[in-house]
Nucleic acid binder design. Structure first.
Length: 418
DNA sequence: TCTGGGGTCCTAGGACCC
DNA sequence: TCTGGGGTCCTAGGACCC
């Protein structure tokens, strides 16, 4: 049976999360900002209509925001993650054939669920709205790439009502002719420029392109996109997420850092968080990379990274901190104003894949018990245990000046209705 | 003045082996 | 003096995604 992919995509996800708990935001232009209130990462339809682009620095559009009385919010990831869980759980109630693709998107296979996918999708859309207050759009097609396009049509076309089915659409080619190449899933800015130079401007052009030429110029990835546009499945539904290949924690600083001690504290704090993620996934790292960078927008920018190997793969926070700090010592450069730092753990393995060392001096059992206890306390009492290496005063901490409350994950932030 | 974060996959090229 | 060919593994960098 041919798969029938339904791509469910939350509309303006971060903004919709905020609106779910603040009805006064309905109908108003709203934007959500990235860390340190730097860039615009989500916009309501009203904000999009003002010409505010995705990803632009907030200061560049400051006057538009001001003039139009746009409601500006810092991002509130705790709230968004919890809302995402609720949406995904609702979708899972319809079918086990679901792939959670990102915080605000999921692919479903409707083939076995219903003979009438569009009616089914409308039911899903209504249920998600009712149970979670989240507006979604749904695109249906026989490949993932086409379902992305169907979703785009569902969002843009006023008479679609938020649901569009390409499998029952009459003239698919006519529709593909209206989609610019840069709006195809898998075609980024660089590929789009190259394609346009070759007079390939729409999804229809790409569908009919010469596969030999595509393979040569854009590799197998480009080729897959062409086949998917033709309706041949290259990307299946991935119901079980593959194990992570890397874990990264990086932040731009709220204030620039010029002191090696402070830089180490930041790296230590990121190593702590990376260790938590690693243990959540029950993984161990063979390698750690640390990078530091000044602002990329200044004249004498400086970027550097260091990679170190562990003797035995580890997820022990103490060990991660020590190695991260050694890396920072090698990376630090006097006189630089550092703006960002990050810790990346890679070459990850599960416990039974660890290559042990005959002369290993570490007490791995003790470390395991300690980490388990720390994690337990921090889950139970919300991050109450810290490592001294993280420092007490953290001037580099990310700043969120306009953050909404943790409505769904903190008792003291519970919404009150008067 | 102010510019996010966390991932994946693919490819080319070097090191190394027989 | 003249110095092959085929394979694997690893890594860095590019491109893309949300």
């Amino acid at each position: 049976m041919k798969p029938v992919f339904a791509l469910v995509d939350c509309n303006n996800f971060y903004v919709s999360c905020e609106r779910a708990f603040n009805p006064r935001l309905a109908g108003r232009p709203v934007v959500v900002l990235s860390n340190n209130d730097g860039c615009i990462v989500a916009r309501s339809d009203e904000a999009k209509a003002l010409g505010i682009a995705m990803g632009v620095p907030a200061f560049e559009v400051a006057d538009i925001l001001e003039k139009n009385n746009v409601h500006i919010l810092s991002s509130n990831y705790t709230l968004y993650a919890d809302m995402s869980d609720r949406v995904m759980q609702t979708l899972s109630a319809f079918t086990p054939e679901i792939e959670i693709y990102s915080i605000d998107e999921a692919f479903l296979n409707l083939a076995a669920l219903s003979k009438n996918p569009i009616e089914c999708a409308r039911r899903i859309k209504a249920t998600v709205k009712k149970w979670t207050a989240m507006p979604v759009s749904i695109g249906i097609a026989h490949t993932k790439t086409l379902s992305k396009i169907a979703n785009r049509i569902a969002k843009k076309s006023p008479d679609a009502g938020g649901v569009f089915d390409l499998t029952s659409a009459g003239d698919i080619d006519a529709l593909l002719g209206t989609i610019a190449v840069e709006h195809i899933w898998g075609v980024g800015i660089r590929t789009a420029i190259k394609l346009k130079k070759a007079k390939i401007k729409t999804a229809l052009d790409l569908k009919n392109a010469d596969t030999y030429w595509i393979r040569k110029k854009f590799g197998v990835v480009g080729l897959r996109t062409v086949y998917e546009l033709r309706g041949d499945v290259c990307y299946c539904l991935e119901e079980n997420p593959p194990t992570k290949r890397q874990v990264a924690v990086s932040r731009s600083f709220g204030e620039p850092v010029d002191d090696v001690g402070k830089l180490k504290e930041a790296a230590a704090a990121f190593a702590v968080r990376a260790g938590e993620k690693l243990r959540q996934e029950k993984l161990f790292a063979n390698l750690i990379s640390v990078f530091v960078t000044t602002s990329p927008f200044i004249k004498n920018k400086y970027f550097n990274s260091q990679t170190a190997a562990f003797e035995v793969a580890t997820n022990d926070t103490t060990e991660l901190i020590c190695t991260a700090c050694l890396c920072v010592e090698k990376l630090y450069r006097k006189g630089c104003l550092f703006k960002k730092c990050g810790v990346i753990l890679h070459s990850l393995v599960s416990e039974n894949q660890i290559q042990h060392n005959l002369f290993d001096a570490a007490d791995r059992e003790k470390s395991k018990r300690l980490m388990r206890t720390v994690d337990l306390i921090n889950t139970r009492f919300e991050a109450s245990l810290h490592w001294a290496a993280e420092g007490l005063k953290q001037p580099w901490q990310v700043k969120f000046k306009r953050r909404s409350k943790r409505f769904t994950t903190d008792w003291s932030d519970l919404l009150e209705v008067a």
